[in-house]
Amino acid sequence: MNIVYAVATIFITINYGLVLQGIIGKVYARVATRIGLRIYQPYINIIRQWVTRTSINHGIMYYLGPVFRFTGGGGILIFLPVIYGAPFFSSFSSAGDMLLIMYFMFLGTLGMALGGGESGHPYAAIAVTRGLAQTTAAEFPLILAIFSIVTQYQTLDVNQIVAAQQGSVLNWTLFTNPLATIAAMLAFLGSMMRSPFDVVLAPQEIPIGPPTEYQSQFLAMLMTNRTIFPVAKTILYVNLFFGGVALQDSWLLTFVIFFLKTFFVYMWSVFVGVSFPRFRVDQSVRWFLKAPAALGVLAIIFVQTGM
């Protein structure tokens, strides 16, 4: 039965992600004083790619690249308690822990690197090196922050981390361990592929990053994942730092809380994205290794000394 729930969770997340993508496209357009795309445009874009008549395969790893990517996004999602305490949305969350999720977060990038590499396009190879450098740098403060909260709660189980934050708003990690939260939120910017850290996928840079050669159904798969992955990541952050989403008396209230929390955490990257210009890769790597990394180290010291 869990499998059905997991598939349903992924399906709902895809829809939520697509709507969110439309809204964010609209936000970006309104900031630039444009009218912007239609809210349902991401749906059409994906269907349109699925129904392309021709497609080209460059080899096995090229084929598996989008699959890896999808596994990364979906993996995070089904091993997370999307809604804590609900049988329906928790799927496999009791079976996996933080380490597994961290692994899934990098799996997609690696798969994309191998797939993009096999496509044989020089731009893809350059973008892969850029992407891996930037993602690794962005993961560093995040992992420090996660070490910090794992030692704080003395568990790797996300369910228990969420459980420890229930009861009051003041129990959230945001208030019990603010340094780790800040470090992780800064790392969050790096993995959302939005400005200022979107040099890897930006069309104006070396076009268009690892998926240069990806087309048709392969691209549709990648686009689907691009809707899942940010949402899954946002849910992870909500779980770790913002008290998670616990099952309330009514499902409606639960969903309202879920959407509000994920929406505002997601919007954090959008606010930064529309305000700041793009970093080069060397700049962003340096940026991640300065303030966010220092905050992460401080967060660990903060927890260890029990201040």
């Binding site: 912007g36 268009i208 990806y214 691209l219």
Partner: peptide, 22 residues
């Protein structure tokens, strides 16, 4: 692409690679 005519409201986007464009 700009705010004056803004083709994106008609579902027109630009892709930098021929593989992904129609």
């Amino acid at each position: 692409m700009g705010p004056m005519y803004d083709a994106s409201r008609f579902g027109v986007f630009w892709r930098p690679t021929p593989r992904q464009s129609t």
